[in-house]
């Protein structure tokens, strides 16, 4: 019933306006692009966090594939204000923990130290802290695995397979 009322209300509002069904307006992803909401410092810290989750080896890590930019964009465009604020808070906690445990900025910590900080946050009893870690990790994995580099170099991505074979032997690497 609630939905019905909402719609009726909307209909009344819309009825008075000259709304054009201009397809191109409002639907293109470009028009929705927003500027980064994190400061340069917070962005650098986020880069360090995603790099800790998926580090550089002989294969590029999350930072060099710009996954932190993706994470920030997703949080900014696809999540509620409180989630956006919790990201800022989570980054603060990350920095504070590093300074408390290792007396240096998170960025200056060794890989092991950074992993220790994030693991502590993952297991935190403080729900917002644990939530920050989980969301950042999930988005990092999503951004990394759907990056052009990983899909084309490691996941045999192809847009046009050209065929479907229903029953083939499993090829072991």
């Amino acid at each position: 019933m609630k939905r019905r009322i909402a719609l009726q209300h909307m209909a009344t509002v819309v009825g008075g306006l000259v709304t054009l069904p201009a397809w191109a307006n409002g639907w293109s992803s470009q028009s929705l692009t927003t500027n980064s909401y994190l400061s340069a410092k917070q962005d650098a810290l986020l880069a360090s966090v995603v790099e800790t989750i998926i580090p550089e080896t002989d294969i590029p890590g999350a930072r060099s594939l710009n996954v932190h930019t993706f994470v920030q964009k997703m949080v900014n465009d696809c999540y509620e204000e409180e989630v956006q604020q919790n990201m800022i808070k989570g980054l603060q906690v990350t920095e504070e923990l590093a300074r408390k445990k290792y007396s240096q900025p998170f960025n200056s910590c060794s890989a092991d130290q950074r992993m220790e900080v994030l693991t502590q946050m993952e297991n935190s009893a403080d729900q917002p802290v644990a939530d920050f870690f989980k969301l950042t990790k999930d988005l990092t994995i999503q951004g990394y695995m759907s990056s052009e580099y990983v899909l084309t170099k490691h996941m045999k991505y192809t847009m046009v397979p050209g065929h479907y074979y229903g029953c083939v032997p499993v090829v072991t690497k």
Partner: peptide, 24 residues
Amino acid sequence: ANMHPWEFEHRGQVPLELRKQNPL
């Protein structure tokens, strides 16, 4: 039609504002 997964800004997900404008 010819966009790769990584070319979608939000990897396909519709931004919150549009989702709120279009609950149906």
